[in-house]
Simulated scan of single mutants.
Amino acid sequence: ARMMMFGMHFMKDDAGRSMVPFKDVYIHALVRDEHGQKMSKSKGNVIDPLELIDQYGADALRFTLTAMAAQGRDVKLATSRVEGYRNFTTKLWNAVRFAEMNEVCVRPDFHPDHVKLQVNGWILEALGQAVADVDRALKEYRFNDAAGAVYRFAWNQLCDWYLEMAKPYLNGDDEAQKAEIRACLAHVIETCLRLSHPFLPFITEDIWQQTSLLGDQKRGWLAKAPWPEARHGIHANDHVMVGRAIEMIEAVRSTRVELGIKPGAMVPASLVLAQNDRDAVASMLTFISRLARIDVLEVTDIPDARAINVVAGQATICLRVEELLDLNAEIAKLAGDMEKLDKQIAGLDGKLANQGFVAKAPEEVVVAERTRREELAAKRSQLDDASQRMKGLLAAQN
């Protein structure tokens, strides 16, 4: 009320009439400890924000509070969350360093609508969608959703996928493709810095002032730079096709982990694709093979009965693992692991079925035990799936 009254007293229009200083009021959540308890000195659970800033940086704390500020829900603050978002700022910094090491620089003549490479179309479509998501969330005061959109784009799409997909082009001999990758990467990082600035003002401003990525252009302050424009829909087809390739890579990676295949091992494989999909996927085989660690021997329309078949959307990847795994030994090992998990799950079931424990134990302890039980059950299900895959492959070989 006082802010409104003082504002109307001191803010006048040209005619000397009082002006309403603001029309919207945002009431932020209460910051609690990681267990949802209100912080107090008597409980000894107070987290000093200045200590967090000294340890992890102001940007990490700012992003943590923003990412957790869901409407109608209190913030459960844990130092581990702040540390996690500190790692996010490091990830962004390393992406810029990677670009600088590969001689990436903003080109004034670059136009995002005219890219030819599918990977560039994919990242530009993702960037446009991220800007639109942040715009929408900020307009609706959903600051956590805005921070989440920035995080997903910068960490998952830019750093985890696009940089990896760009490496073969940057290390290749085709100068035209290399030039397009460099120009597109510069555009994406420059836009990402502007998009991230409200959430990470210090590190983004520092990068903006120091990076060679922006070239000799007069850069000024990032805080005064134009807000990015949401441009999406132009490269929608590239986004779909590269998205399918990513789905294939993720499916193969998940299966490799389930089967215990060494990360560096190349797995012989064949791809089962519909005839009308082969040309589109063929252009992406290089980074599918590189990122999934598979050696594609053929593209066919018949699944391999002697392989472990991994379904990813409309494609099937047939992994020939018989020379990489001792199937009988792996099945026995999985059976032992599942037996241990069964005992742990049974113990937790007994504890949670005890009404005395549920009634007397602190709520956060009960919740933690239930969460642990769910995690163990999910892991047990994954091991069982892997065991069934191996048994099926063993039966096909015999």
Rank of each mutant, 00 (worst) to 15 (best):
I123D: 01
E330P: 00
A60C: 12
D174L: 08
Q382L: 14
D384V: 13
Q355W: 02
E369P: 02
F199Q: 06
G350T: 08
A60E: 11
V366C: 12
W221P: 07
N144H: 14
K224Y: 15
L352C: 08
F143W: 09
K351A: 15
R380L: 08
M266Y: 04
A1H: 10
G313M: 05
P263G: 02
R62M: 09
Q55V: 08
I181D: 11
A176W: 08
E164T: 05
E229T: 14
V96A: 10
F63L: 13
L222P: 02
L77W: 07
I308D: 03
V134C: 14
K91W: 12
L394F: 06
A78H: 10
H187I: 03
A230V: 11
G264E: 10
A280F: 00
D24G: 02
A225M: 06
L319I: 10
L77G: 13
L30Q: 09
C159E: 11
H35V: 06
L200S: 03
G264P: 04
A292T: 00
L297V: 01
R97K: 12
E103I: 07
T316H: 03
I302Q: 06
V252C: 00
L61N: 08
L222A: 03
N87M: 10
G44Y: 03
R73H: 05
C159R: 04
A332R: 14
F287S: 02
R290D: 11
L77D: 14
F143E: 04
A312W: 01
H232Y: 13
A70P: 00
V150P: 05
E322T: 13
A395K: 15
G36I: 06
N120A: 12
N171G: 09
V267W: 00
A179N: 15
L383N: 11
F88P: 01
F153A: 05
V96P: 02
D174N: 14
L383S: 09
L393Y: 00
M338D: 03
K91T: 08
K38C: 00
K91F: 04
S254W: 05
R373G: 10
E374V: 13
W227N: 07
V188R: 03
Q382D: 12
V75L: 08
G172M: 13
R107E: 15
A307N: 07
E205F: 00
F143L: 12
I203H: 05
L213H: 00
E175D: 10
H197V: 03
D113F: 15
R372W: 01
L393E: 00
G57P: 02
I302L: 10
T371N: 15
E330T: 13
E34Q: 12
A15H: 15
A377I: 07
M266E: 06
D385Q: 13
A332C: 12
V311N: 14
A29N: 11
T79W: 02
D342R: 08
K23M: 09
V82E: 03
S283Y: 05
L50F: 12
E247C: 00
V104W: 06
E298N: 13
I207L: 15
F88T: 08
I47F: 01
M39I: 02
